[in-house]
């Protein structure tokens, strides 16, 4: 099966300068990230702040150009195509952002927000656009009679439904969703996650679902990639990754997540050591070694490559079984 999206060796470094314009270092935001997403598949991308997950999602839609590496969508490298071809490709990939308060123009009516991609991509007839907006609003669980309201008239969950409707307008093959439910209350979060699952079943589209929330990632993803300081440290099928996390960082994340189980309050927990280092000067060797319970000399010197682990995932660790 050929992949819908193939990301190969994706790297993005940002030069950092001081106020005089002199270079003071390089932020290694993303280094050598590779993954594939098949048609109808969801890849979950998880990690903590600064791990590079948002930079990856922006490179997939070409909002950020990579320093090295390729983003191949349906066989075409999106960074090597012409402007007009890129406009065509943009119809195939759409994005949903985290903050439904910041990502929608507060002065536009819901109808105009949802219809904008249609207009940009040449649907000239107003009645056609309106018909499509009605269809989309109903699809995402909004009443079409609310279409002339501005975002202020909608709740957070409803605004995220508007953002999803806008993303669906052009029938994309892939939706990149960067923390789409993180700003929502838990009861509303469940509604939006369910909506995204339903839409996927119905339309067969793929998701790159970026989140810091293990519970949501586990629920929605077929496969999961765990990022730490700009690199994928473990990737595999959701069931394998959660049943047999191989990388010590994956295990740290799972241990650290609070569980809705009061018995844990009194039990002694494994608390993660240390803090995430700066991507400006990432540690040598394996970037996780200063916090890792398994670290030895080889971890301080050599970068581990991704390799198959016993639990069925691929992990970048010298010591994982």
């Amino acid at each position: 099966m050929s992949a819908l999206l193939e990301v190969e060796g994706l790297t993005r470094h940002f030069a950092v300068t001081n106020s005089a314009g002199n270079s003071i270092g390089t932020v290694h935001a993303v280094t050598d990230v590779s993954f594939k997403i098949g048609a109808g598949e969801t890849l979950g991308l998880i990690g903590e702040s600064g791990c590079g997950k948002s930079t990856v999602s922006k490179m997939v839609v070409r909002l950020v150009e990579p320093t090295r590496g390729a983003v191949v969508l349906e066989g075409e490298d999106i960074n090597k195509v012409s402007f007009s071809r890129m406009k065509m490709l943009r119809k195939r990939v759409q994005m949903v952002f985290q903050d439904p308060f910041g990502s929608l123009d507060p002065r536009q009516a819901a109808e105009d927000i949802i219809a904008e991609p249609l207009l940009v991509h040449g649907m000239r007839s107003k009645s056609e656009r309106r018909a499509r907006v009605v269809e989309l609003m109903e699809r995402v669980g909004l009443r079409a009679d609310q279409m002339r309201n501005t975002p202020a008239a909608f709740s957070g969950g409803q605004r995220q439904r508007i953002a999803i409707a806008r993303a669906l307008a052009l029938n994309p093959a892939l939706i990149v969703a960067d923390e789409p439910v993180s700003a929502l209350d838990v009861s509303i979060q469940a509604q939006v996650v369910n909506l995204m699952v339903d839409i996927q079943k119905e339309l067969g589209l793929s998701y790159l679902f970026v989140s810091h929330d293990l519970g949501v990632i586990r629920h929605i993803s077929d496969r999961v990639a765990v990022m730490y300081l700009g690199r994928i440290v473990e990737i595999g099928r959701t069931s394998d990754l959660f049943a047999n996390p191989g990388h010590p960082y994956t295990r740290t994340l799972m241990d650290a997540l609070p569980k809705p189980n009061p018995a844990r309050r009194l039990s002694k927990k494994r608390v993660p050591r240390g803090e995430i280092p700066s991507p400006l000067n990432p540690p040598t060797g394996c970037a996780f070694h200063p916090r890792c319970p398994l670290a030895t000399d080889v971890c301080r010197q050599q970068l581990p490559a991704l390799r198959p682990l016993a639990g069925g995932t691929q992990g970048a660790c010298h010591h994982a079984a």
Binding site: T42, G215, R218, H219, I220, D222, F242
Partner: peptide, 14 residues
């Protein structure tokens, strides 16, 4: 409404 371990049918999609 909390997505939690025990209630997960493994491959998501529930």
């Amino acid at each position: 409404a909390i997505p939690r371990d025990e209630a997960m049918p493994g491959e998501g999609r529930g």
